[in-house]
Write a protein that binds this DNA or RNA. Structure first.
Lengths: 245, 245
DNA sequence: GAGTGGTCTAGACCACTTA
DNA sequence: AAGTGGTCTAGACCACTCG
């Protein structure tokens, strides 16, 4: 398959695609070691340098990681928080902290128009809603609502998410062979809605960070729309700015 | 200089450092073409492949850009907006829009403690404050206050910023040989302060996105602390999430 | 056609990990 | 010592741009 006569794509791109597919199919689990660069080169009939270029790009994309002297490994699925984390407001050189998730529950809802549109579904399609509460050192920090097309993830419920360590993305990977990738995140400042105020133990209407996220499969098919309300009274959200010093 | 006997750094890393320095010194202006990979290889006494690896990394870091068949060029200095842009709230596949800056004025202030700390200055050090208003299709969207150490940028004033197209970063580059790089951006949701409310023509207290940014020189020396208040009633802020689909 | 970046190969040697 | 990733070289050929 590699080495097609009329190749439009460079070899290393084809290799990336092939390996991504295999990983998506579960050929190697997260943190499992890939064959060595030389083995892959031989199997695919290309030089080691070409395999290396493909792997290097997949490493920078976060799909793989390398350990010198040991091997190349499949990276963990993206965490549900999906960002680098939070930092004490105003302190630029301090350590990033990742909040911990608590599963509040799962329910079935019908897709509002805006959501159906974003997920590429029919109006009113059935969705599963997963609600999570995020805490930073016991203090409530944020609430998430993740919406997933029910058709695509038949059987996803609270029990299944709990089995996956409370992570929706982990459940998607382990039970539905979907490795979610981030399509886009949108940030706004909005007044905290009543319902989320109750969950966070904070007065309705205070300014909160609204983070809306669309997630897709490796094949580009939308798999999740997520809405987060994040308190930023003492901690600030740090976006993952490509390269930072 | 390259090819030091006791080299701790790989050659391509040394080449990156060397070229960054030269660019910082203004050896090539933005959008000016570098010598070809072969010329650089000969000058530095390394192979073309090694030069290529150095250039490739500098391209992914945004310092250079390439055009096939033409050459490798120095990238423009980062724009004052510094992010990818804004997008209509809820629409994930729409075009990113960049607001335009309007210079409101320059003034001298003494550094509050928090700011002196972040910039690595003494308490109460003299700062230049540059205030900008951002518009998207004539509508006011955000206000910025950029604070720079007065000592390091003697003579920076409104006239000089205007000469640089209203861009602080452009002025830093053209008049003080500083190519600013982003250290970190912190996001919060806060009530719009009175003063900024007047500038934006919006009621005090509405939730706005607070974006605080620290910028440094290529050598890692802090050069700017910036505070932005951004309205997100209809448009959402899109962070530059490393790799996105 | 000359010059540039883009891909690919084959081979060498180094640095690190593990047994 | 064997196996892995990490660096570097020399050379080939392709794809694109421009005069």
């Amino acid at each position: 398959m590699i080495r097609s006569q009329l190749r439009r794509q460079p070899l290393y791109t084809q290799i990336k695609t092939l390996l991504s597919q295999r990983i998506g199919e579960g050929a190697w689990q997260p943190n499992e070691m890939l064959p060595s660069e030389w083995e892959l080169a031989e199997e695919l009939g290309v030089s080691q340098g070409t395999v290396r270029k493909a792997l290097t790009e997949m490493v920078t994309e976060g799909m793989l990681y390398r350990q010198q002297g040991k091997g190349t490994f499949v990276a963990d699925v993206m965490g549900d928080w999906a960002g680098p984390g939070m930092v004490p407001a105003g302190l630029f050189r301090s350590r990033l902290e990742l909040p911990a998730a608590e599963l509040l529950g799962c329910s079935r809802v019908n897709a509002p128009d805006e959501l159906a549109e974003a997920l590429g579904l029919k109006r009113g399609a059935a969705l599963v809603r997963v609600r999570q509460l995020w805490r930073l050192q016991a203090e409530a920090l944020a609430v998430d609502d993740a919406y997933l097309p029910a058709e695509r993830i038949e059987g996803l419920d609270a029990k299944l998410v709990r089995q996956s360590g409370g992570s929706v993305y982990n459940a998607l990977h382990r039970h539905y062979a979907v490795r979610p990738v981030l399509v886009q995140e949108q940030l706004r400042a909005v007044p905290l809605p009543r319902e989320e105020g109750v969950l966070l133990g904070v007065a309705e209407g205070v300014p909160v960070l609204s983070i809306t996220r669309l997630t897709a499969s490796l094949q580009g098919e939308p798999v999740e729309w997520r809405q987060r309300y994040c308190l930023t009274r003492t901690m600030a959200y740090v976006p993952d700015h490509g390269r930072v010093a």
